[in-house]
Amino acid sequence: MDALQYLEKVGGVARTGQLLAAGYSRRDLARLPSQGAKQPRRGIFILAEHRPEFATALRYNSYVSCASAAEHYGLWIRKAPELHHLACNHGHGTGFVRHRTIRFDPHPSLPIAAVEDVVLHAMACLEAPASTAMAVSAIRLHGVPLDLLKEQLRGDRSRPVLNALKDLDLRAESIVEVDTQHLLRTHGIAFDAQVAIPGIGRVDLLLEEFLIVEVDGFAFHSDRKSLRNDLARNNASTINGYLVLRYAPEVIWFEPERVIAEIRAVLELRRDAPAQFPGDLARPSPGSSGPATLPRFQNRS
Rank of each mutant, 00 (worst) to 15 (best):
H142N: 12
S174V: 12
Y73V: 04
R296A: 02
P40K: 01
G155I: 03
R271Q: 13
Q298L: 02
G241C: 11
L126K: 01
N299I: 06
D147S: 14
S62F: 01
R300L: 12
S109N: 15
D179E: 15
S25A: 08
R224I: 13
S158Q: 03
L32F: 07
K150Y: 11
A124F: 01
W253F: 11
I239N: 15
I197R: 08
P160Y: 02
L141Q: 14
L149H: 00
F220Q: 11
P81E: 10
S226W: 10
K225W: 11
S137R: 04
H121Q: 13
R98H: 06
A57P: 00
V13A: 07
Q5T: 14
N234M: 13
L205R: 11
C88D: 02
G91H: 10
A261F: 09
I239S: 15
F277Q: 10
R264F: 06
C66K: 03
D204K: 15
P33L: 12
L141M: 10
I200K: 10
E209N: 15
P284V: 05
L86T: 03
A3D: 07
H85S: 04
P33K: 12
A219W: 12
L19K: 01
P106F: 14
L205V: 14
L165R: 01
T132V: 03
S222D: 13
R171F: 05
I175R: 10
R103A: 14
H72V: 08
N229G: 09
L126R: 02
F254W: 03
L245M: 08
L206V: 15
A219L: 14
F104V: 12
G155V: 05
R264W: 06
R78Q: 06
A69F: 03
P291C: 07
F45V: 01
A30R: 11
F45Y: 14
R246K: 15
G43H: 11
H90N: 08
E255A: 12
R100V: 04
L245W: 05
P249A: 07
D156S: 03
H99Q: 09
S301N: 13
P249T: 06
L170Q: 08
A273L: 14
H221R: 15
I139Y: 06
R31L: 14
V119F: 08
R283D: 03
Y73N: 07
A236I: 13
L120W: 13
H90E: 04
K166I: 00
P295R: 10
L141Y: 09
L168N: 01
R171E: 06
R59H: 08
G188P: 11
P145T: 09
R300M: 05
A292E: 03
F191P: 13
F45T: 00
I112G: 04
R224Y: 11
T101Y: 09
R296M: 01
L4M: 09
Y73R: 06
A219P: 08
G199L: 15
E257M: 04
R154L: 07
